[in-house]
Amino acid sequence: MSMSHSIALLHGAGYVGGELVKLLHSHPNLDLAAITSRTYAGEPVYQAHPALRGQVNLSFSDPTDLDLSDVDAVVVAAEHGRGMHLVPQLLASGFAGPIVDLSADFRLSSPAMYTEWYEETHVAPDLIDAFVYGLPELNAPYASETKLIANPGCYATGLALALAPLAAQNVKLSAHVTACTGASGSGASPSAATHFPDRDGNVRAYSVLSHRHTAEVQQSVGEHIDLSFVPVSGPWTRGIWGTIHLSWPAATAEAEVSEWFAAAYADAPCVRLSAGSLPELRPVVGTPFMDIGWHVLGEKLVVGFALDNLLKGAASQAIQNLNLLLGLPETAGLLASPSAMPSHKLAVSAG
């Protein structure tokens, strides 16, 4: 636990980049050695992340002038469409350490799927099979030779973890999802959808039944889950809150559903479960946790979920993956103690 690993963060000027800087800077076993930005090259990190002034004494490097010879692992926080250019460049330069890519470019299992959902030709199709989809609760432990991790999307993390214990029952189901996200989910570049006077006090559905993260979720839970997803823009800054409505083929006891979730996440320190009640948003904001709860009435089942889109939906999940790749405790740098309370200990509603 005393060993320090040197980390380079590429394109770290966005909202997720700021969260990664904070997590890496305070991590007991990871050392943020370099951070790049095209826009802020040569400027202090606090120019992009003002809250870090007086805390992080680093300046942004130019992405085209970066020495990785003493770097143990790389985190790529670039926008979608850039990861598939950057990763081949890193590998061609001789870098052989772990790479965690937060773009969507290596999440889907085929170039055709990527083109279908992102309307762009994949320029590194031969690398897709080399990546592991980095949802630790479902796919870890990773094989010892794993070096390349595709960090999941924020909505995809929430939906996949909320549905996975049900999908494991191998019952054909229709899942109807409505999930609301805060303005930070749209990224740091302003747009009409994130402009505060338009977003404040307003709720707006978008990408109805066609959100890109649907493909990621379908890969994780299987085709026997018929997924209908309505994403919603909410009037807050960060956090995702959603519900999934399902009709089970036969009446199911709440205790049985609880057993499914407890078994699925018995060794998942970043998942918190609540039987008989749906989670709220505020308790997960600023944390690396995913909260899941459920309510059962005969053949009707509602699963609720909540997570911080910038943390469990992006940055803290990347740290989970780095920890696993580098042989560290999964929650190192995320929780006060790596030996957190077992996540399978259910919270039961008083009602």
Rank of each mutant, 00 (worst) to 15 (best):
Y15L: 15
H224A: 15
R282P: 00
Q55I: 08
A33Q: 05
A255K: 11
H5G: 13
A306G: 06
H27K: 01
R38Q: 08
E216N: 00
G42H: 03
A48L: 02
A275D: 00
P338L: 03
H213L: 06
A96P: 01
V171Q: 10
V284R: 11
P165S: 15
N57F: 12
M84E: 03
N202I: 06
P279L: 08
F305A: 09
D65E: 15
L138Q: 05
S207Y: 02
A175T: 07
L90R: 04
G242K: 00
S4R: 14
S26Y: 13
V284Y: 05
A251T: 11
A332G: 03
Y265F: 15
R272L: 00
A104R: 11
Q55D: 07
Y114N: 00
L108V: 02
A13Q: 13
S37N: 04
T331L: 04
Y40L: 14
L301Q: 08
E299H: 09
S144V: 09
S144Q: 13
L310W: 05
T121A: 09
I7D: 02
Y142R: 10
Q219G: 01
Y142C: 06
L346N: 08
G276W: 06
S93T: 13
E299S: 14
Y118V: 00
Q55A: 02
G313T: 05
A78M: 07
Y15C: 04
D101Q: 01
S61C: 12
E119F: 10
Y142G: 11
L32Q: 04
P136Y: 15
V87P: 01
Q47L: 08
T243N: 13
L161G: 12
W248N: 14
L310A: 10
L166T: 07
V74D: 05
G298P: 10
G234I: 01
T331C: 05
A215Q: 04
A340P: 00
L278Q: 02
Y133V: 05
S59E: 12
S274K: 06
E116L: 03
T146A: 00
A78I: 03
Y15A: 08
L159K: 04
H80E: 08
S339L: 08
E259G: 15
A306E: 00
A332T: 07
N202K: 01
S93A: 14
Q47T: 13
A112S: 07
A332I: 04
A162F: 09
L301M: 09
L108H: 07
P98D: 07
D62Y: 04
S61D: 15
H295K: 15
T287S: 07
H211V: 02
E145C: 05
Q169R: 10
A96Q: 09
A92G: 07
N170Y: 09
S274H: 08
A306W: 02
A336H: 14
T178F: 10
G234T: 11
A250P: 00
G12L: 01
A51G: 03
V302R: 13
G17I: 04
L301I: 14
F131T: 06
L166S: 08
F196G: 01
C180T: 12
Q89W: 06
Y46N: 04
M290D: 12
D105F: 02
P338N: 09
G333V: 12
V257L: 13
A77M: 00
V123L: 11
L86D: 04
D31P: 02
S228A: 15
A318Y: 03
E43H: 14
P329Y: 12
G97D: 03
A41G: 12
N170F: 10
L91I: 03
N151P: 10
L322W: 05
D291L: 08
L10D: 02
G298W: 13
V71D: 12
L307C: 07
L326N: 12
